[in-house]
Amino acid sequence: MSLRPANLLRAATLALLAGFLLWPQRFAPLFAPLTQYGAPPIYDQGDLLQLTLAHLATVCIAAVASTLVAVGLGIFVTRPSGAEFLPLSRALVNVGQTFPPVAVLAVAVPMVGFGEKPTLIALFAYGLLPIFENTMVGLQTCNRELLEAASGMGMSARQRLLGVELPIAMPLILEGVRLSLVINIGTATIGSTVAAKGLGEVIIAGLLSNNTAFILQGGLVTGLMAVLLYDAVGMLERRICKSAHPA
């Protein structure tokens, strides 16, 4: 990795986030002006690092599930045998996106109880759409000539999918995953309303005790994570797809 400005910025952001999570008290003077009547300037009702990792874990588990289901569905509805399910799948996935995650929580809690589970369900449903749409577009726009060449040379349907269609659709699929991840890093904060471990706790604590410093800390850590994750998937995307796309 060279010392280009982008890399410097990347390293600085990561260092800032890590520094804050490992030694939050060192940042106390920065946040002190935001507190009143001697309230604590740094979140003190739990370990920030653990909350952040729990938050990240919830988002990543939901993202893996969304990706598997959305990509699988995207592949299925672009095969001749699944084409008739395209409108139905589209409708379902769209509902997942338009149904507010808070409402999903409300519906899910009576069924699966409080904690991580309802949050995972809400994030899973919310994250499907971008990945599904991008998978479908990526597979559908695969050049007809290319598919004909692949079949003409004797690739089976499976070899064609794995060797040609998916690699060519990969940049778009990853773009969908990236979008989904970033949206859900933010959305996951609502999980704290149903007792899931996450950065929402920090924000809610701030709201309850009228402590602006807490709210800002929860928001900033969430935001920095989203930025870093967005960037990381972007790098992965460029590495994987370098060849498929003319510079």
Partner: peptide, 11 residues
């Protein structure tokens, strides 16, 4: 089998 526009795999 060779076709117009070659159909080479870009990746």
């Amino acid at each position: 089998y060779a076709i117009q526009g070659h159909g080479l795999f870009p990746h």
